[in-house]
Design a protein around this nucleic acid. Structure first.
Lengths: 135, 135
DNA sequence: GTCCCTGCAAAAGTTTTGCATTGCG
DNA sequence: CGCAATGCAAAACTTTTGCAGGGAC
């Protein structure tokens, strides 16, 4: 997907936030993004990062995930699912073949019109499985 | 599932919290539970409710849901899914037929051992759909 | 000149923790 | 008596908001 000229002003701060998210592959939290951006724009403040993240989410440039207790951000805006390691917390993108008809029907029975869904698998990543032995 | 004598002391405060969650059908937040319990045990404090909720979750007596920005609690501890109204926030229990093999395979390709999953559908409930007209 | 953006600080909200007190076992 | 549980208050943390200053258009 090409990036159209945004309808908002792309200031250096905003560009830095956008780049950090785009380059990240680890679904960083707002605080983590703030720290990484600060390495490039030492003067930037919390509020600017938070406001920029909201802006980018609103415009569909990035995705906000509410997987655990804090918000995380994902540059992959196409529909996909996630798997989270319950040991170390690492999150990976995956695709689960879940037919739209299944979700539509299940929710429709409850009287809902369904727009979409969020699916998160829970387990142990390869690293944690190996390092901590069997369990 | 019958309730075994808990391995923790079932004080009046804890019993009240447990009952409130068991009687609730609306996936209340910790604050909502606190307010409802307070109606029965006026002297109870925040901390006790929070600590009791953690305790009950640890022992599998109730479920903690992280669907939105705050924690919600569910007395239904058997595996099931949820649908949330993006307009009013109401949450309902549903069951989506998602074969374990599908999740297992998808995650295994990423190197994860999968224990379970959380599936949340998003849409508009019957009430919101009717009241706000088309959109 | 006007308006948007930024940075700092404070506020708001949820959840956790410290600590003295209470009361069961 | 000993120890777990409680209640209150304060802390920790994430996220939002207010506001004055500054730069872009």
């Amino acid at each position: 997907m090409p990036q159209p000229t945004p309808p908002y002003r792309l200031t250096p701060q905003r560009a830095a936030v956008r780049e950090v998210v785009w380059e990240a592959r680890d679904h960083p939290t707002a605080r983590e993004i703030y720290l990484r951006v600060k390495a490039r724009q030492p003067g930037i403040g919390f509020a600017t990062v938070y406001r920029t993240l909201s802006l980018l989410v609103e415009h569909g440039a990035i995705l906000e995930l509410r997987l655990g207790d804090v918000a995380r951000y994902d540059a992959n805006v196409s529909p996909h699912d996630h798997v989270r390691c319950t040991a170390c917390g690492v999150i990976a993108d995956i695709n689960v073949p879940l037919p739209a008809s299944a979700t539509q029907r299940a929710a429709h029975d409850s009287g809902f019109d369904v727009d979409g869904y969020e699916l998160q698998l829970l387990g142990r990543c390869a690293t944690c499985r190996t390092s901590s032995g069997g369990r």
